[in-house]
Computed example of a mutant assay.
Amino acid sequence: MMRFLLSTALFSGLFLSSFAQDTSIYDTHQLKKGIYKSFREFRSNQPSENGKLVVKDKTPAAQIYLLASRNQLMLLDSAGHEHKVKNFWGYSDGTAAYIRDNGLNKFDEIGYYCLYQVHAITSAPANRATEGIIFNNTPPATISRKVLNIVTGDVYDLTFFNLRRYILPQDTALLREFNEDPKNKEKLIYYIEKFNQRNNPVW
């Protein structure tokens, strides 16, 4: 009887472990739709809130003068009214996952280090006059790349310094290759992708 109970407990533990692994964002082939209230919900592929979601873009003027992010997540109620979603970490539309960081930014890669881009307008456009005609230039935009550690939730700017100091030291062979590469400053994304291919997160 004791042996049966132990076997049952072992089987249940293996089943639960396998289920948890299958539903993690790192291992899954199917993202669940909904709103992530926390990093933990993102990592486990378990959004805690669902509904009809719409992403509304902000105008460049709002981004500059109101210090607003470039877009906003809205939830539609049964009457079709939009409600601003507050206090959330990110969301998934079932095809891709997005992190909230100066607006919603799509993950280009989900791995040990999840890669994404942040788009921002940095300043008001300058008016340019040519032969008495005034042109209102498009506000300058910047794109920066960041990575999210899927184990800890830490976010790093994808820079030469951060790659060499915080990320690649976990893989000494790859760090050596990086340090010996004369074009390493131009290949930051390549080394993140290679790190992801070579390393699996330990939960």
Score class of each variant (00 low, 15 high):
Met1Lys: 12
Phe4Val: 15
Leu5Gly: 03
Ala9Phe: 02
Leu10Gly: 05
Phe11Ser: 09
Ser12Gln: 05
Gly13Ile: 13
Gly13Phe: 07
Gly13Leu: 11
Phe15Glu: 07
Ser17Ala: 10
Ser17Pro: 02
Ser18Gln: 11
Ser18Leu: 12
Ala20Pro: 04
Ala20Glu: 08
Ala20Arg: 08
Gln21Met: 08
Gln21His: 09
Asp22Val: 13
Ser24Val: 06
Ile25Ser: 11
Tyr26Glu: 10
Thr28Tyr: 06
His29Pro: 10
Lys32Asp: 09
Lys33Asn: 06
Gly34Gln: 02
Gly34Met: 01
Tyr36Glu: 08
Lys37Thr: 14
Glu41His: 03
Glu41Ile: 08
Glu41Lys: 05
Gln46Lys: 12
Gln46Pro: 07
Asn50Asp: 12
Gly51Cys: 01
Lys52Val: 11
Lys52Gly: 00
Leu53Trp: 00
Leu53Asp: 01
Leu53Glu: 01
Leu53Arg: 01
Val55Lys: 07
Lys56Leu: 12
Lys56Ile: 15
Pro60Asp: 01
Ala61Met: 12
Ile64Cys: 05
Tyr65Phe: 13
Ala68Tyr: 10
Arg70Gln: 15
Asn71Asp: 15
Met74Gly: 01
Met74Ile: 11
Leu76Asp: 01
Ser78Pro: 11
Ser78Asn: 12
His81Cys: 02
Glu82Ser: 09
Glu82Thr: 08
His83Tyr: 05
Asn87Arg: 11
Gly90Asn: 06
Tyr91Leu: 06
Thr95Val: 15
Tyr98Glu: 04
Ile99Gln: 09
Ile99Tyr: 07
Ile99Pro: 10
Asp101Glu: 10
Gly103Asn: 12
Leu104Ile: 10
Phe107Ile: 02
Glu109Met: 13
Val118Met: 10
Val118His: 04
His119Leu: 15
Ala120Asp: 14
Ala124His: 09
Ala124Asp: 08
Ala124Glu: 12
Ala124Lys: 10
Asn127Glu: 11
Arg128Thr: 15
Arg128Trp: 01
Ala129Met: 10
Thr130Met: 13
Ile133Gly: 01
Ile133Thr: 14
Phe135Thr: 14
Asn136Ala: 06
Thr138Tyr: 07
Pro139Gly: 09
Pro140Val: 12
Pro140Phe: 02
Thr142Ile: 14
Ile143Cys: 00
Arg145Asp: 09
Val147Thr: 03
Leu148Glu: 07
Leu148His: 03
Leu148Ser: 05
Ile150Tyr: 01
Val151Ile: 14
Val151Lys: 11
Thr152His: 03
Thr152Pro: 05
Val155Ser: 04
Asn162Gly: 06
Asn162Tyr: 03
Asn162Pro: 09
Arg165Phe: 00
Ile167Gln: 03
Ile167Glu: 05
Gln170Gly: 12
Asp171Pro: 11
Thr172Met: 07
Thr172Tyr: 00
Ala173Asn: 10
Ala173Lys: 07
Ala173Val: 13
Leu175Thr: 01
Arg176Ala: 13
Glu177Leu: 07
Phe178Ala: 06
Asn179Val: 09
Asn179Tyr: 00
Glu180Val: 08
Pro182Gly: 02
Lys183His: 08
Lys183Asp: 12
Lys185Leu: 01
Leu188Ala: 03
Tyr191Gly: 03
Ile192Arg: 02
Ile192Thr: 01
Lys194Asp: 05
Asn199Phe: 00
Asn200Cys: 00
Val202Leu: 13
Val202Arg: 13
Val202Tyr: 07
Trp203Cys: 03
